[in-house]
């Protein structure tokens, strides 16, 4: 990435590590989204360790109590929950969806999952 792009992105992206940070801050840290190109040419955008830490901190042992709502959120935004990695992710092909739309959807799902915390500790 050249310096021009970096200057455009400095507020939102951590371009050095290949993450996008589109907002919704937890303890001053943006929600990182990892871009990955899979071998089958799909793109996988996924939440990162800070979202995992957030869900662990907030939901502790009762995240499973909210699986019903997480399922509804996933259905709405086209996202999915990886219970092994404790990640929310979206997988898509560039022909079917723009990256912007995919980021929008994943970000939206993350915001709603984060909001579930309000029901416990608000």
């Amino acid at each position: 990435m050249n310096s021009e792009i970096e200057s455009v992105l400095h507020e939102i992206y951590d371009v050095r590590s290949g993450f996008i940070i589109p907002g919704t801050f937890w303890d001053g840290d943006g929600c990182k989204i990892l871009f990955e190109q899979e071998e089958d040419k799909n793109i996988r955008l996924s939440s990162c360790e800070n979202f995992e830490a957030f869900t662990e901190q907030v939901f502790i042992d009762n995240f499973e109590d909210y699986t019903e709502y997480v399922s509804k959120i996933n259905k709405r935004f086209g996202t999915a929950w990886d219970s092994k990695r404790r990640q929310i992710y979206i997988r898509f092909r560039r022909n079917d969806m723009s990256i912007a739309e995919a980021v929008t959807r994943l970000h939206g799902a993350m915001m709603l999952i984060a909001a579930l915390d309000w029901y416990l500790y608000a």
């Binding site: 021009e4 792009i5 992105l9 939102i12 992206y13 996008i20 990256i99 912007a100």
Partner: peptide
């Protein structure tokens, strides 16, 4: 570059 700009609205 185009996509990056698209992503960040």
């Amino acid at each position: 570059d185009k996509k990056l700009r698209e992503i960040i609205w």
